[in-house]
Each structure stands twice: as structure tokens, then as C-alpha cells.
Simulated scan of single mutants.
Amino acid sequence: MSALEGGGGGTLSEIYQSARRQLLRTRDGLEKLERLEYTAASGMDSPELSFSIKKDITQIQSLCVEMDRLWRSIAAKSQRDLWKRKVEQVAEEADSMKQSLDKYFLRNQKRMMEAKERAELLGRASGDSAHILRIFDDEAQAMNSVRNSSRMLEEASATGEAILFKYSEQRDRLKRAQRKALDVLNTVGLSNSVLKLIERRHRVDNWIKYAGMILTIVVVFFFVRWVR
């Protein structure tokens, strides 16, 4: 028997071509299996196709074992090295496809377990589903109310800060005006009684200013309490 002929019939070249054809068929089958898995809404299983792919991969691996035995019997080293690379390439592709198929089986098993768990959970919770939905609705409404209250509090706080800032600006302007007035009065030499009258008026203005600030703070405080 020639070194390029196998014990089961067929030369090394014929076995190699048969393995290549099966590789192409297996690759097409894997691609179809993945399309079925990812295009379906919940992942569609095809037992017949996956079993056929597994069978083809097993047959390819058997052919690789036969080809591995045959290329070692080739006398010419150059031809032997060439066939070694070819056979190794086929074996690597077959192993890669087997790993892809194994991963598919694991994903499919995981989907089946998750579907079973969901069915069990839905079965246990079927009587309480309406109650659970009501709880979710109440929680959502409560969260919206909290967000609205928080926004109103922020707006009230910003308004109060703006009012206090305006009072502070007015106080500074009054101080500057008082200093200028005192400078002018001192320059023209007005009497001490007039200066004392101005000072009393300044104190009254300060009382009015502080009373207004306190009133504003009280109003903002009660507004915040009302919002809550």
C-alpha cells in the first residue's frame, strides 16, 4: 500500500479534501446556529442542527488522526513537512469549531436554567404581582414628590439668599452715603444737635433694616416648612 493511501480507502489528498469539505459545512452550520440563537427573541435552540455539527466535528477529528498517520509515512521531507502543516491546520480549525459548539451548549444550558427559574418565580409570585406593581407605583410617586419638594426648597433658598444679598448691598450704600453726608456736614460746620439727629435717624434705619431681614428669614422658614 502506498504511503499516501489510508487503511480505510482513499489517498491522503482525498481524505484531506473530504475533511476540508466537512469543515466548510460545519462552519456554515455554526453560523446558522448562531443566527438562530441571537436573532430569536429568547434564543432558539436547534437540537438537530447542533447534533449534526457535533457529528461532523467528530468525523473531521477522526480524519485528522488518519491523515496524521499517513503524512508520517511520506519519504520526502519537503512533502512530509507540507502535509504536516496542512493536517495541523485542519485539526486546529476542528478544535476551534468544537470550542465554539461547546460554548453554544453552555449558553443554551444557561438559558434553559434561567427560563426555568423565571417560570418558578412567576409561578410563586403570580398571586402577588398586582400588589408588587402597586408598590412600585407608590414608590415612583413618592420619588417624584421628593424631587419636586427638593426643587421648591432650592428655589426658596435661592430667593432668600438673593434678598439678603440685596439688603447687604443697600447697607453698604447707606454707610457710604452716611460717611459722605457726615463729611459734608463737618465741612460746613453744622451743630452737634443736627449730627446727633442724623445719628438717631441712622440707628432707626438700622432697626428697620434688621427687622426687614428677620421678617424675610421668618417668611422663608415658614415657606420651607409648608413645602415639606
Rank of each mutant, 00 (worst) to 15 (best):
G127E: 14
G127K: 15
L133C: 06
R176S: 12
S150G: 10
W207A: 03
L82S: 14
R225P: 00
D56H: 05
L36A: 09
E37D: 11
S42C: 09
E34L: 15
D172A: 13
M1Y: 13
N192R: 11
V204W: 03
M97F: 11
I208T: 00
M44V: 05
E5T: 05
E88F: 06
R107K: 12
E37C: 05
E92Y: 00
T11L: 01
V184K: 13
L122C: 12
E117T: 07
F165H: 00
G212M: 02
K98H: 13
R201G: 12
Q22Y: 14
E34C: 14
E14P: 04
E199S: 04
T58N: 07
I163V: 01
K55W: 12
R72M: 14
D95M: 06
S149V: 02
K98A: 09
A140L: 10
D205L: 01
I53N: 03
E93A: 14
E155L: 10
R118M: 11
S149H: 02
E120W: 10
A40F: 15
R171D: 05
E34K: 15
S100T: 06
L182S: 09
N206R: 01
E199Q: 03
K84S: 09
D95I: 03
M143T: 09
A40E: 15
K110H: 07
K55I: 05
A177R: 12
A140S: 13
Y104W: 05
S168W: 12
Q109G: 13
A181W: 13
K110M: 03
T26Y: 05
T58I: 08
D68G: 13
N108P: 06
E199H: 04
R124S: 05
C64T: 13
S50Q: 05
N192F: 09
N148K: 14
S62Q: 09
A181S: 07
E37T: 07
D45F: 10
Q170F: 07
I60L: 12
A91W: 06
R171Q: 07
S52N: 13
R171A: 08
V220N: 01
I60D: 12
L182M: 08
R35Q: 14
F51V: 02
G9Q: 00
